[in-house]
């Protein structure tokens, strides 16, 4: 037990360095995915059939490919040496998550009663004013649990990006294990670190959710 803890303290700085990269890639990847997702959602609820088709095709393709294959294909097949590994990782994660985000946004917007749109439009608000001031604020409230789910999922997905040599938490553990063969210890450390981060994030999202709970006031 003491040895387990000693080893933990010894490798903690290296693991935290890996975690830093994990968080950075997740944060930027998810942020880009949210922006892309909103854009795709606007396309998929538009009345223009072509735009709608573009969005649904993108979503079908991205959701239908395992992240591992998407990462290997894009990194080794398309991107090659044209950008840094970390930038590539962010882009790959963003592409993957954006398809799921788009569906979360679409479901959220469509869950709002059509009467809200009609009321806003009949007061003279434009389509975009209605979306921005009336529909989106309400949809966000519904979407937060799903958004949080997807963000947690994407954060964990960064582990897969170790396959394209991103030096994040999982790859860092692997590299240490290659040196000292302590698979049980190192993987359990990584697991604990992931778990702590995700418990913290879940707590944060619960706080945000309860702050937005205007129906209870």
């Amino acid at each position: 037990m003491i040895e387990y803890l000693n080893l933990f303290w010894k490798y903690l700085p290296m693991l935290l360095n890996g975690l830093k990269l994990t968080l950075l890639i997740a944060l930027l990847g998810i942020s880009i995915a949210i922006i892309l997702g909103i854009f795709l959602c606007v396309l998929s609820i538009s009345k223009n059939k072509i735009l709608e088709k573009i969005a649904s095709t993108y979503i079908t393709i991205v959701r239908g490919i395992p992240l591992m294959i998407l990462a290997l294909f894009l990194y080794f097949g398309v991107i090659k040496n044209s950008m840094s590994t970390n930038s590539a990782a962010i882009i790959i994660l963003a592409i993957n998550a954006s398809a799921y985000m788009a569906e979360i946004f679409r479901a959220g917007v469509q869950a709002i009663d059509i009467g809200q749109t009609e009321a806003a439009r009949s007061l003279g608000l434009s389509y975009f004013q209605t979306m921005r001031k009336v529909i989106f604020p309400q949809a966000v409230k519904i979407m937060i649990p799903s958004l949080m789910n997807q963000s947690i999922s994407s954060l964990k997905d960064t582990a897969i990006l170790s396959a394209i040599t991103v030096n994040e938490l999982t790859l860092t553990s692997k590299v240490i294990i290659a040196r000292n063969y302590r698979a049980f210890e190192l993987y359990s450390y990584a697991a604990i670190i992931y778990l702590i981060v995700i418990i913290f994030l879940t707590y944060l999202s619960k706080r945000v959710e309860s702050k937005l709970n205007y129906t209870q006031r």
């Binding site: 009467g115 809200q116 009609e118 009321a119 806003a120 009949s122 009336v134 604020p137 309400q138 205007y214």
Partner: peptide, 14 residues
């Protein structure tokens, strides 16, 4: 310029 009142009120809950 035309006001409309709905069966289900459609006030904005937010």
């Amino acid at each position: 310029n035309i006001g409309m009142v709905f069966q289900h009120f459609n006030l904005f809950p937010n």
